[in-house]
């Protein structure tokens, strides 16, 4: 844990880098401290779409090389249109399915499986890190918690992510979402 935290030294003025670093730290907490098992289905879906698109392009390149242009016309039409359709699907996938979710983790509690989804976003030129954690379990409960905090709370003056603080924050959210059921 401390090793990864040590390595994560970033340019703290770069919003995207800061977001990625904090995202990574949260993933560490979810899958490390909290002993949830990361589920890769969502990111694998995106990787699959990307790989498919690149594959289609490579296929078109190869086909056009083997059967120079006028002959390869039909294959090119199919490849080009499916490539752009795939790009469209990829855009829809990232905006409507992933929605900034950077970790999906599963956890077994008795015979109940809880699925945790953490997503984050940062507005342009803003120091506020917005985190949303959603918990779903097999009983059909869905609970959500969100935190908006400045990066200054998670990253120290040198640009290092302070793993302890992130860990505390996430653990707090985790427990509040886990226990909410009992209070009801």
């Amino acid at each position: 844990m401390s090793e990864t935290a040590e390595a994560a030294k970033i340019n703290k003025w770069d919003g995207a880098a800061a977001k990625n670093a904090v995202d990574d730290a949260i993933r560490e907490v979810m899958t490390g401290d909290l002993k949830c098992k990361e589920s890769f289905a969502l990111i694998d879906g995106r990787l699959f779409l990307c790989a498919l698109a690149v594959g289609v392009a490579l296929y078109a390149l190869l086909w056009d090389y083997l059967y120079p242009f006028p002959q390869s016309r039909l294959v090119l039409i199919i490849c080009v249109s499916s490539y752009f359709i795939l790009m469209g699907i990829l855009t829809l996938y990232t905006t409507f399915k992933e929605k900034g979710i950077f970790v999906v983790a599963k956890e077994k509690v008795g015979n109940n499986t809880r699925v945790w989804e953490a997503s984050s976003y940062v507005k342009k030129h803003d120091d506020k890190y917005n985190l949303v954690i959603v918990m779903r379990d097999t009983n059909g409960n869905t609970r959500e918690a969100s935190v908006t905090k400045s990066f200054a709370n998670f990253i120290d003056v040198n640009g290092t992510v302070v793993q302890n603080i992130v860990s505390n924050e996430i653990t707090k959210l985790y427990h509040s979402l886990s226990s909410e059921k009992k209070e009801k």
């Binding site: 690149v54 289609v56 056009d64 090119l76 490539y83």
Partner: peptide, 18 residues
């Protein structure tokens, strides 16, 4: 893959123009 997609997009635009 992102790098691959940037190259592929350029390639596919070219092939599409063809």
């Amino acid at each position: 893959l992102s790098l691959g997609m940037i190259v592929s997009s350029a390639l596919m635009i070219w092939k599409g123009l063809m």
